[in-house]
Amino acid sequence: MGPLINPQQIINGLQLGSIYALIALGYTMVYGIVRLINFAHGDFFMIGAYAAYAAFFAFNAMVAGRTGTLAFIVLVIAMATSASVAWLANKLAYKPLRYKPKLSSLITAIGVSMFIEYFFSAFPAIGASYRAFPEIIPRRDIHIGPAVVSNLVLIDLAVAAILMIGLTLLVRRTTLGKAMRAVSQDKDAARLMGIDIEMVISFTFLIGGAFAGAAGLLAGMTYPRIFPYMGILPGLKAFIAAVLGGIGNIPGAMLGAYIMGIAETFASAYNSLIGEGIAFAILILVLLIRPTGLLGEKIADKI
C-alpha cells in the first residue's frame, strides 16, 4: 500500500477533473440562465467524441504527419458538432417549453438524452458497440520523481485551462458576458433592458455544447474507448460537480469538478464499488448539508 497522498493519484484526479470541468461548465451555465438541468448535456460530450473520431479518419491522410494541425482540426470539429447539436436541442425541444412548468423541460431533456443515445446505437453506421479511439497524439510519458505524467495529462490540463480562461474573460469582459449575467440574475429585467434573451440562451447552449465537445475529444484520447452511452455517467458526475460547486456558478463548477475528479480517483483506487458510488454520495451529502453548494448563493423564495 502506497502513501496516503499518492502524487500519481492527484495527477490522475486533476486530469479527470479537467474533463469533468469542461462538461460541468455547460451544465452550470445552462442552469444559471434557464434553470434547466439539461440531461442531454452528457450526450453532447459523447457526440464530441464521435465527431472527433470521424474527423480523425477524414483528415488523417490529408494532413499526414502534422500531428498538431490534425489535433487542432479534430478539436474544432468536435466542438462545432456538439455546439450545433446543443443549439438544435434548445431550439427544437427546450424553447417551446420555456414558460411552462420547470419539470416539463426537465422531462423533455430526459427524452432528448434518450433519443440521442438510442439513435446513435440504433444507427447502423455508428452502432451500440465500443469503438477504439485512434491515437491522435502519440502518448509520451514524462517521469517526475515517483509519478508519471504523460503528455496527454498536460494536453488535458492545458486545453481545459485555456477554455476556462477564455470563458472567464468572455463572461467578465464582453457585452455578451454581461448579457449572460443579466439574464441569469433576472430574465424579465434583462428583457426590459433590451437584451435579446433567446439570443443569449442560444449562445449559452452553443458555448456549453462546444465545451462538452472538447471534453469528448479529450476523454477519447485519454480513455481510448467510445460508445453511445459513454456520456451518461460523466454527464451525471459533472452535473454533481456543478451542484457541489454551486449550480449556476462558473468558478464553482470548476472547483467542484476538480474535487470530484480527485475524490473519484482516490476512492476508485481504494475500492471500485466506492469509486462507482462516491459521486452520488457527494451529491446526497451536498444536498443535505449545503444545497447551495460551495460557492452558490441562497435564492430566497418570494412569498
Binding site: 420547470k102 419539470l103 452535473f239 446526497i284 444536498l287
Partner: peptide, 11 residues
C-alpha cells in the same frame, strides 16, 4: 423539482 429528481435518480 429538479434537485429532487436528481437525488432520486442517484438513489
Amino acid at each position: 423539482g429538479d434537485y429532487l429528481a436528481i437525488v432520486t435518480l442517484g438513489f
